[in-house]
């Protein structure tokens, strides 16, 4: 079942690490939303921004102008681009994450949908999140593996966007992402050459995402 904007603003919280393109993914998402004629917003929270530090990024998409610009506290969608979050959760005592890592389960409701970059199965992810028996939809895609195979670098953005296209087809689709990539990569021939690989990664993200 896909999410729809008919019910109002959709709020997204991204969990990643500095330098792994989470901010870029959130920006692409907002850009794609605007291209589709919606109001899109992405708020990168800059702590002491260092490569490798955990970051939380917030996005909103709506049919109406967006009034709020505060951090998303009750996310409709949680996107975990950093695979180590699940590893930490699995290894942690009583499911508590180290203080330096924002907890992806904070403020979630039964309706919150998870999109996770991880090699594990969606059932396992749901169990690690402590959501067994809950109505939450937990979707997993191995975006890092897809990125390494298709693009040759650990930039899981487009594979994640592919998974999002499955959950939020109203906002994200292949054609608009292609347009976005052509605009943002188009100025440099080196980047331009990466567009087909990124689109392939997105297509695989769409096809390979599994939900529980």
């Amino acid at each position: 079942m896909a999410l729809s904007l008919d019910k109002g603003t959709i709020e997204i919280r991204w969990h990643g690490r500095g330098g792994q393109g989470t901010v870029t993914a959130a920006k692409m998402f907002a850009s794609v939303a605007v291209k589709k004629g919606f109001h899109g917003q992405s708020i990168p929270m800059f702590g002491l921004e260092r490569s490798g530090t955990p970051v939380a990024v917030y996005s909103r998409v709506s049919k109406e102008p967006i009034q709020r610009n505060d951090p998303v506290r009750k996310p409709d969608v949680v996107v975990i681009t950093d695979p180590s979050v699940m590893v930490f959760l699995a290894a942690s005592q009583g499911g508590k994450l180290p203080e330096s890592i924002p907890d992806p389960r904070e403020g979630i409701t039964d309706e919150t949908v998870f999109i996770i970059n991880s090699p594990m199965s969606p059932e396992e992810a749901k169990r690690i999140l402590g959501l067994e028996g809950k109505p939450n939809k937990v979707c997993v895609v191995d975006a890092t593996k897809i990125a390494l195979e298709e693009i040759g670098r650990n930039v899981p953005n487009t594979a994640i966007l592919g998974a999002m296209a499955k959950i939020l087809p109203e906002v994200v689709d292949m054609e608009t992402v292609r347009e976005e990539l052509e605009e943002s990569f188009g100025a440099s021939s080196k980047l331009k050459a990466l567009i087909p690989a990124n689109l392939k990664a997105m297509e695989r993200g769409y096809n390979e995402v599994r939900c529980a």
């Binding site: 907002a30 899109g40 992405s42 708020i43 990168p44 610009n69």
Partner: peptide, 10 residues
């Protein structure tokens, strides 16, 4: 700063 300068919007 950041709240507007770095937040993406329409």
């Amino acid at each position: 700063g950041y709240i507007v300068s770095h937040t993406i919007g329409n």
